[in-house]
Simulated assay, not measured.
Amino acid sequence: MMALCALKRLACLLFITLSLCSLPRAGAAATPAPLPSGVFLPIQVHVAVRILNVSRIAATEGEASMMVELTERWSNPALAFDPKVSGFGRIDTVGDEAVQTLSSMWTPGTEIENQITTARTEATSVSVRADGTVTRIRRIDADFRVDIDMTSFPFDHQDLTLSMVSPRHAADEVIYVMNDLDREMSSIETDVSASNWTGKRLSVVMERYHGWNARPFVRVKAMAEVERAWQYYVLPLFVPFLAVTSVAVFILWARVSLIGDKAPITYSALLALAALSFTYESSFPGSISMNSPIAVMVSLGYFYLIAVLLTDIVLIYADYPGKQRYPHLEPEIRAYIRLAIPAIFLLICLSVAFNALT
């Protein structure tokens, strides 16, 4: 009798456990629809990318805020219909209706790998043609992780890359393709919202990589090239720099009676140069911290000011060979270095700037 009761209790416990396991869990992801039937694998998904706007480029954070339009097109014969019966050759849905339509059909599940924030705005539209061709268009306004190269600032061009993959389907199931129409559709707006930036061109390439399960996948990389309007940076960057480093010219050319002790003036210029570098970094983030040409010039400026002061001290106070025997030697050396040292520094700065332009 006790054994029978124990069996009944065990059966009740097993029934409750199975019942709890069969209940749907909150937040569980819906099972994706199976691959379309009646199509050859891998399924070709045509893709086109448009950059509608670039509203922010943060160099130090490596981020860009963009509005992206992603168009995907594939064939699903199971969705074909007779246009003579329906009276139209295409079914269009937008917004929530489009999202509901997509939830009941197979999609490539394309994701933008380097999207780092939830989309501020997102709009979706779906078109199903009579032959079963499905076109999905998504407009996404979000922040993306990008690589920023400041080595040519302020004459730089940046490639803002979007990386798109289908994590659910390997290359033997889904591949991305582009034809001439897709490439013609892919573009970037010239007039963007980001201050002092201009959109130039958009290029799209496909590459193969291996996922965590060692299966090959296809990645789409859309590279949007933007150009900085360097004309707006020349005066704020280079005029203050030249004004501070011009102290060296006064040290070499002015009389002692005119400027007095030269050491305090030089160290004041060094402090001004340090303050100028902080101003550059706060006004143009990344201009100093990311090894830009202006950062190289500021570093050379410290050396230049100290070198001029030391040269002047040596000529005046040091007992170098021939100073007593040839009294005219110091004026001759000073006349030479007055032109040579500033000219060499100017040529180095110009070469750094021109190297950034090329």
Rank of each mutant, 00 (worst) to 15 (best):
I316R: 08
F238C: 09
A340R: 11
S187H: 08
P240T: 02
S287K: 03
V85P: 01
T118M: 12
A307L: 08
K323D: 10
T133S: 12
A243K: 14
C5F: 10
I333W: 08
M185V: 00
S283P: 05
S289C: 01
P236R: 06
F153T: 05
T17I: 15
G211Y: 09
R136W: 09
R334P: 01
E122K: 13
L271Y: 05
L258P: 01
D261W: 06
E69R: 06
M150H: 01
A295Y: 00
F278A: 12
C21K: 05
V314E: 09
E225F: 10
E97N: 15
I188V: 08
S186Y: 02
M297F: 07
I43C: 07
Q100L: 15
K200E: 10
R215H: 12
P240R: 03
A11D: 06
A248V: 02
S75R: 09
N291T: 00
G211A: 12
F15L: 11
S203I: 15
S195M: 00
T17Y: 14
R73T: 12
N213F: 13
S195D: 03
L350I: 09
P34C: 08
P83I: 02
F250A: 06
R215I: 01
I259N: 07
F217I: 10
L310E: 10
Y280D: 02
W106K: 09
I337C: 04
I348T: 03
G322R: 00
T110F: 08
E332L: 14
A48I: 01
F40Q: 15
P240W: 04
R208A: 10
R56Y: 08
S299T: 13
S282N: 05
N53R: 02
T121M: 02
Y267T: 05
L339S: 12
A123W: 14
I140R: 04
P108V: 04
W212C: 14
V256D: 11
Y302G: 05
E189P: 04
W106Q: 12
A48D: 01
M178L: 10
I51D: 06
M206Q: 06
I16W: 07
P77G: 07
G109N: 14
A130V: 01
T190Y: 14
H157K: 09
A123F: 15
M150R: 06
S65T: 15
P342T: 04
S292T: 04
L41Y: 10
G260Q: 03
S152R: 12
S104Y: 14
P331K: 02
F15I: 09
G38T: 01
R255C: 08
F155D: 00
P167Y: 09
L23R: 01
Y336N: 14
I344D: 04
